[in-house]
């Protein structure tokens, strides 16, 4: 499963393009975007090796990377499922039934919030407002937003991801928002 922690040439070119946005010597600014890319490339999480690699690319200390990676909620510091189902739990989603959505997912997948299914396919996360309150209740998976959820819709969404069987990342080009 684990591969060598190294970007291919195309990704290196992308990283260099990102670094060029910033003034000379400010390449640390590229840290958040590059961590997103690294997480997507290396199994959906940031292992210590991945973080050290990113540090070397940006010519900063590994501790500067750990510090940042642990601050932001979108970086996973532990292995996760291929599809992270992130269900919003804040006010407007809560008032329109997000608790039922979470319970349904837990039962359906046989896991609790924060856990990963045995087949490594799904992780359930409960998250704070995703700026999708008009489509409450909602969940995000990778780059895609799924809004106005019902239990049946959740079943469909989960089935579709299962059939597709692919890892979903925030950086995916092919997002599929459903209303």
């Amino acid at each position: 499963m684990s591969k060598e922690i190294k970007f291919n040439e195309e990704t290196i070119a992308l990283v260099n393009k990102i670094i060029k946005r910033y003034p000379e010597g400010k390449q640390k600014s590229a840290l958040l975007p590059v961590l997103h890319i690294a997480q997507a490339e290396f199994d959906g999480w940031l292992s210590p090796e991945t973080m050290e690699y990113v540090a070397s690319l940006l010519r900063i200390k590994p501790v500067e990377v750990f510090e940042v990676a642990s601050f932001y909620s979108m970086y996973n510091l532990k292995p996760v499922g291929k599809c992270i189902l992130e269900v919003c739990r804040t006010s407007s989603c809560w008032s329109r039934g997000s608790e039922d959505i979470i319970k349904h997912l837990e039962k359906k997948l046989g896991i609790k919030v924060g856990e990963t299914s045995k087949d490594g396919m799904f992780t359930i996360k409960s998250v704070e407002c995703l700026g999708s309150c008009g489509g409450a209740p909602m969940l995000q998976c990778g780059a895609s937003f799924h809004e106005n959820l019902t239990l049946e819709k959740v079943d469909n969404i989960v089935e579709n991801y299962r059939v597709e069987g692919k890892r979903k990342s925030y950086t995916d080009q092919d997002f599929k928002n459903t209303l």
Partner: peptide, 29 residues
């Protein structure tokens, strides 16, 4: 003039303008 887009990584506090600037410099917010 040049424009670029920078993505954050999940932190409400980075909406506070000085936290945002820290984040944009590649630091904790």
């Amino acid at each position: 003039h040049d424009i670029f887009v920078q993505v954050g990584a999940g932190a409400y506090i980075c909406g506070e303008e000085t936290a945002l600037l820290e984040s944009l410099e590649g630091k904790r917010g």
